[in-house]
Simulated assay, not measured.
Amino acid sequence: MTDEPPNRDLDRLLDDIYFGQERVTQAEIYRRAIAADLHASLLTRIGAMPEGEYAIDEAADLLGGSAA
């Protein structure tokens, strides 16, 4: 787990996941968040997202990030 604020970690994760992608599934976001060893509060928020595909702005809105 990193010492950075969770939202900064979230923004970096989303930027990485969406590089070259328009839409990504909730399952992929969750899988990549676990692999990145993100804070438990972020994992909980990602796990609570409804299943489906999201654009980066939709995911950031749901998760409280600022990536867009």
Rank of each mutant, 00 (worst) to 15 (best):
D16M: 08
G47Y: 02
G47C: 08
A35P: 07
A48I: 00
H39A: 09
D9T: 13
L42P: 11
R23V: 10
L14P: 09
L38A: 10
D37R: 12
T25S: 15
R31Q: 14
Q26D: 10
A33M: 03
T25A: 09
R12K: 11
Q26W: 03
L14G: 06
L13G: 11
A36F: 06
D11R: 01
E28K: 01
R31H: 10
A40H: 10
T44N: 01
L43G: 15
E28S: 04
L14H: 04
V24N: 03
L14E: 05
A40V: 13
L10S: 09
I17M: 03
I46S: 02
I29A: 03
R12I: 11
R23D: 09
T25F: 01
T25V: 06
D15P: 00
A40Q: 12
I17H: 00
L10I: 08
Q21A: 13
L43D: 10
I29T: 07
L10G: 08
R23Y: 11
H39C: 03
D16Y: 05
R12A: 14
I17A: 05
L38C: 09
H39N: 13
T44L: 01
Y18S: 07
L38F: 07
E28Q: 11
E22A: 10
G47P: 12
D15G: 11
G47I: 09
D9C: 14
L42W: 03
Y18Q: 03
I46K: 00
I29C: 03
D9M: 11
D37H: 12
Q21P: 00
G20L: 13
Y18V: 08
A40G: 09
L13Q: 07
E28I: 13
H39S: 08
R23A: 13
A27N: 07
A36Q: 08
I29Y: 01
G47T: 11
D16A: 14
L38E: 13
D37N: 13
R45A: 14
Y30F: 15
I17S: 04
F19P: 00
R23F: 13
L10V: 07
L10N: 06
G47N: 11
L42E: 05
V24G: 02
T44V: 04
A48P: 00
T25W: 02
R31G: 12
L43C: 11
Q21V: 07
R8Q: 15
D9P: 00
R45S: 11
D16C: 05
A36D: 15
R32Q: 15
R45Y: 02
A40P: 10
L13M: 07
D16T: 15
A27E: 14
G47W: 03
T44S: 03
I46G: 00
G47R: 02
A36E: 14
V24T: 09
A35N: 14
I17D: 06
A27R: 10
Q21L: 12
G47D: 08
A35M: 10
R23Q: 14
A36L: 01
R45F: 01
D16K: 13
Y30M: 12
R31V: 07
V24F: 09
